[in-house]
Every structure is written in structure tokens, then in C-alpha cells.
Design a protein around this nucleic acid. Structure first.
Length: 543
RNA sequence: GCGCCCGUAGCUCAACUGGAUAGAGUACCAGACUACGAAUCUGGGGGUUGCGGGUUCGAGUCCCUCCGGGCGCGCCA
């Protein structure tokens, strides 16, 4: 059992003795920011002051007496401070024993207990109508990191990409591609306002010309279908490659065309019949009976489905595969979407909590001092590929992981590319490389797994932080906050660099201390690597 | 007008979900390599957390009024 759990149990037991009924898991303990406040602190005395009609410090004193009586091997010292905080100083051995655990568990250190919960995370899901841009990059980082966190925390995770391969957008893709193809044969470029003006389509048109010559200049159903199918294949191929190169993989690819097969939408709408009505020729779903502010159309006046109908069928499809939780990683401009989809799920009896959205704020990009607007019409945007090539995969991933997904973010493209060496990711990677370097130099020394000689403040700070790794994962996963991992990494790297500058590690005159410190460094290296891996960032031995 | 997100150091962002003296990076200033990697370390200035109320032992965090910004509010997806 880890120190925190043990401490909570002790506090709960002591509390009971003085008439406070609290369960161990309800006990709130914090890590003390200031070392003079000990290793942990609890606020129970203040929390129950009113109920017991006593001064917080009096309760704290009583609790302290009880805790001392329980006489555990964990606590070295207890102090009462401020308005009624109880500060705990842990025994040395209870901290150093962690080293052995980390060395034994290695890559698995930090992994939570296997949980039965099955989670589906759908992210990116960009339409195959052009290159991924910087906004998708952020969604990819957030989605992938959430998956990594869930996995590490012990959940069963499925990464899913939903491919819109039907509908208006796709018609525009086919039309745009046809336009580019005709352009290659010397005709003027004819694109509609809503078509795709991105220049990537020129390359695809060229490959058609090379492969098929003028075969598809004729305007018939066959060529219409061809441009769409060819365009989707090429565009999605690029997306897949971009993501794979970025370290992002998907377990399941769901195509809208497959969702539509076998009358799934008709069946879905049939099931939803009690919640639908017809108005002015269109069919509406009564989402406002649940979590939406108005009802939404599912069938248009012209008899076509809106995007919403297949989306409902798709979400039912996901639920039918046995997931306990669906997470949709969406651009924040889609925040209106979640209420209606939750409503649709509730109509089928699913919990309001079966679906959660993770909204990723749009990135505002500045290049050469002016804002770069994403624009379908001009096709101008910073592409994902361009960004990764100029800044590097690790730096990009870390940059976006550092910020909470909900944070509005201003991105200075010039700064990011010119000063990429100042990206904090190198601070962490350098710490890892230093660990590797020292371990290599000290490879002839045996490691002391008891780490019994560690006593410097900088050493104990590292130990405490290493100890926090599992609980950090637990809370970061629960709140879907990869930025907490980045903060953790930065802190660990900082503590290590500080220790490194203060303490000589390899000392032939003091083999015992060397053995303890090498064990500490090995632990540091393991946790740095595990933590960086949670963000999909590499941990190089040399830089 | 209604709804969602947000407003914290010059700039970009944190703050363990209500805790102790609000922290990092960057930029700026001053120091530190004849022993393990200076992509590092040490120190410094920089804040009325947009404004004003409220809740309580305690508020950047929760509630309300304003101010300012972004995004939604389509039989587009």
C-alpha cells in the first residue's frame, strides 16, 4: 500500500476516535508546497470545526494525539500550523523504499490497476478534403494523450476515427478535384465558393492524369463517382500518414458510408419515432425535451438526412460495441453539438454521462505579425506537416500538451520555428540524457536499491515527486488533462537539474553513496521516460 | 438578445478542482564550467488574478451585476 492511502486510513481512524465520521477515501490530503510544512497536510480539522463546535486547532491537537497513539511506522513528526492544518513529516525509510519499487516495475511504474471500464475516444476525424492543419494537430495531441493517459491509468481504450465519406463536403471534394483535373488540360479553373481551393488537389489531379490520361474528362456518373472515391482515398491516405508519422494511431476507422449500410439510419429513426415530429415537411427530433435548447431536424424537407441522423446512428453504433464511455474530442466551435447528441443517446436510455466531449480551443496563429485565418476558400492555413517538419515532432507534441485543451492559445509561428530550441521539451529530454550519461559512466558500480544514504533536500524532493507519479496519472486521466503530465515532467526535470548541480554522483571515495545516488538517477530516468511516453515524446539517451 | 469558453507578470500559459507567501517558460539584468553534458545552475526586478459585490475559518477557483475577447445559436457538417 502506498503512503498516501496509508495516511488517509490513519487519519480516518484517528478522526473516528474523536467523533468524526469520515471514510479514508474522503480524507483530503495535499502535498505541502513548502518543505517546512512537511510532506503532506490535511484540512480535516478545519472542515469539521463547525460541526463539532470546536476551534480547528483544538481538533487538530486531538487528532494529532490520536495519530501518535496509533503509533505507525509511517509518521516521523506531526505539526499543527496556520488556521488548523495538520502537517505530516514521513519517516525516511517510507520515502526511500520507493526506489526499489520503481526499479522493479520499470516501464510499468505508474500504471494503474486494470479497470473494467471500456472507453472509446474519437478524435481528429477530419473530413478527407484537404491537408490537416494546425488545429487538427492540437486535437491529435489532446486525443492521443488522453488515450495514453487512460491506458496508463488502467482503462480499456479504443482510438477511433470517423470518416465522413458521404454528403455535401464530399461532393465538393469531387467537384474541386474535377476542376483541378480539367485545369491540367488547359481549361480555366472553375471552382464554386464552397469548393476546396487548397493546392494539394493539384497534385492529386496530376496523379490522375498520369494514371488515366483524359479518361475522366467526360462528365458522367462514372467519372463523378471516380473523382470522389479517388479524392477520398488520396486525401485520407495523407491524413493517415501524417498521423502515423506524428505517433498517432487509430484502432478503428468508422466510415459514414458503412454506418449508412443495412438501413441503420432508417432503423435508428424508427426507434426514435416517439421523439420525432414533422413540421413544414421536415422531421425534427425533440432534443429540447432533454439537454438541448431547441429541437433539431433529422430529415430535411427535400427528404435527405441532415448530418445529425447518421451521427446519431454512429453514436448508437459505438455504444452497441459495449463501451461504458464515449469521448468526442471536438473543436470548440462545435460545442453546441454535445447537448443534442447526449439528448439522442438519452432517448435510447443511455446515461447522460455516456458521452463526454473534450473541447479543444482553436489556435490563433500569427505569422509575420499577421493572423493566419483558416480558410476553405483560399486554402490558406498552416498545415500540420509543415509545422512538424519545421519544429519537430517532440517539440510540437510537447508544446500543445503543455496547455489545457480549453485554453485559448495564441501561436506565434515565427517564434515557434526560430526558437524551437527553447521549447521546454528539451529541458526534460536533456535531463533524461544526463541521467543516461551518468549511468553509463557509473555502470561499474552496483546500485543500492534501498537508497539508504539519500538525505539531501534535493534528493528527498526528487523522491517525493517520483512518488507522486501514479496519483498524478490517476487525476490527470480522470480530468483528461495531459497538461498535468507536462507540468509533472517539467518539475521532475527541474528537481533533477538542481540535484545534479548540487551533488556529485560518482565518487570512487564513497562507493556506498554513489550506489544510492545511481539508484536515484536510474529511477529518475525511468519515470522521465514513462512520463514523456505519456505525451508521445521520445526520451533520448543522447542529444 | 440567448448559450458555451475565457480574461492571471511585457508576452505564452499553470495553479493538485476551496487551502498556507498566486507559480513556470520566455524576454530583460547580474553571476557560475582546469571533476559526472552550460540545451544546465544561482540570484534579481516584474501582480490590486478585468471591475464591483456576495458566500466562509480561507476565493484566482463557487454565486450575482457590469466591462472586454473568442465561438456557437443553419432543413451546413
Amino acid at each position: 500500500m502506498d503512503n498516501e492511502t496509508k495516511l488517509k486510513q490513519l487519519i480516518a481512524e484517528a478522526a473516528k476516535a474523536i467523533g468524526i465520521d469520515i471514510k479514508p477515501e474522503e480524507v483530503v490530503i495535499d502535498h505541502s508546497k513548502d518543505a517546512s510544512h512537511g510532506d503532506y497536510s490535511t484540512n480535516v480539522a478545519m472542515r469539521y470545526a463547525k460541526a463539532l463546535h470546536k476551534a480547528p486547532r483544538d481538533i487538530a491537537n486531538e487528532l494529532s494525539a490520536e495519530l501518535t497513539k496509533l503509533d505507525d511506522s509511517l509518521i516521523e513528526k506531526i505539526e499543527i500550523a496556520g488556521p488548523g492544518f495538520i502537517n505530516f513529516f514521513l519517516k525516511h525509510a517510507s520515502l526511500t523504499s520507493l526506489i526499489k519499487k520503481i526499479l522493479e516495475e520499470g516501464k510499468n511504474y505508474g500504471k494503474g490497476a486494470q479497470k473494467p471500464t471500456k472507453i472509446n475516444v474519437e478524435f481528429v476525424s477530419a473530413n478527407p478534403t484537404g491537408d490537416l492543419h494546425l488545429g487538427h494537430t492540437r486535437c491529435a495531441v489532446v486525443g492521443d494523450d488522453i488515450c495514453r493517459l487512460y491506458e496508463k491509468a488502467g482503462y480499456q481504450v479504443t482510438r477511433e476515427y470517423y470518416l465522413n465519406d458521404c454528403g455535401n463536403q464530399i461532393e465538393h471534394l469531387g467537384h474541386s478535384l474535377r476542376g483541378r483535373y480539367h485545369e491540367l488540360f488547359g481549361e480555366g479553373l472553375q471552382l464554386d465558393e464552397d469548393d476546396y481551393h487548397g493546392e494539394d488537389l493539384i497534385q492529386i489531379a496530376k496523379s490522375i492524369k498520369e494514371e488515366f490520361g483524359d479518361k475522366y474528362l467526360v462528365d458522367n456518373q462514372e467519372s463523378h463517382d471516380f473523382f470522389i472515391a479517388y479524392g477520398i482515398e488520396k486525401e485520407f491516405g495523407k491524413i493517415k500518414k501524417d498521423m502515423a508519422d506524428f505517433g498517432v494511431r487509430f484502432d478503428v476507422l468508422s466510415k459514414e458510408s458503412d454506418i449508412r449500410k443495412g438501413g441503420a439510419i432508417e432503423k435508428t429513426l424508427e426507434e426514435l419515432k416517439p421523439f420525432t415530429y414533422v413540421q413544414e415537411g421536415a422531421t425534427f427530433l425533440k432534443t429540447s425535451d432533454f439537454l438541448d435548447d431547441k429541437d433539431r431536424p433529422v430529415i430535411k424537407k427535400d427528404g435527405c438526412y441532415t448530418y445529425f441522423a447518421p451521427d446519431i446512428a454512429y453514436h448508437y453504433n459505438k455504444m452497441s460495441r459495449g463501451f461504458d464511455l464515449l469521448v468526442d474530442v471536438l473543436g470548440s466551435d462545435h460545442h453546441g453539438y454535445i447537448g443534442r447528441m447526449k439528448s439522442a443517446l438519452m432517448m435510447k436510455g443511455y446515461s447522460e454521462k455516456a458521452l463526454e466531449a473534450e473541447f479543444v480551443q482553436v489556435v490563433r496563429v500569427y505569422k509575420d505579425g499577421v493572423e493566419v485565418k483558416m480558410s476553405k476558400r483560399t486554402g490558406k492555413a498552416i498545415t500540420h506537416r509543415e509545422l512538424v517538419e519545421e519544429v519537430g515532432k517532440d517539440a510540437v507534441r510537447y508544446f500543445f500538451a503543455e496547455r489545457a485543451a480549453s485554453a485559448h492559445l495564441d501561436f506565434n509561428y515565427n517564434l515557434a520555428t526560430e526558437q524551437s530550441s527553447t521549447n521546454p521539451v528539451y529541458y526534460a529530454q536533456y535531463a533524461h540524457a544526463r541521467c543516461a550519461s551518468i549511468l553509463e559512466l557509473g555502470k561499474d558500480f552496483a546500485l543500492d536499491e534501498t537508497a539508504s544514504l539519500l538525505k539531501e533536500e534535493s534528493e528527498m524532493s526528487i523522491l517525493k515527486h517520483l512518488n507522486d507519479f501514479p496519483s498524478m496519472i490517476e487525476s490527470a486521466a480522470a480530468s483528461r488533462s495531459p497538461n498535468k503530465v507536462a507540468a509533472y515532467i517539467h518539475k521532475l526535470a527541474e528537481l533533477f537539474h538542481e540535484f545534479y548541480s548540487k551533488c556529485r554522483v560518482i565518487d570512487k571515495e564513497n562507493v556506498a553513496l554513489t550506489a544510492s545516488r545511481l539508484a536515484l538517477i536510474k529511477s529518475c530516468k525511468i519515470v522521465l521516460e514513462n512520463a514523456l511516453d505519456l505525451l508521445g515524446v521520445s526520451a533520448p539517451d543522447k542529444m
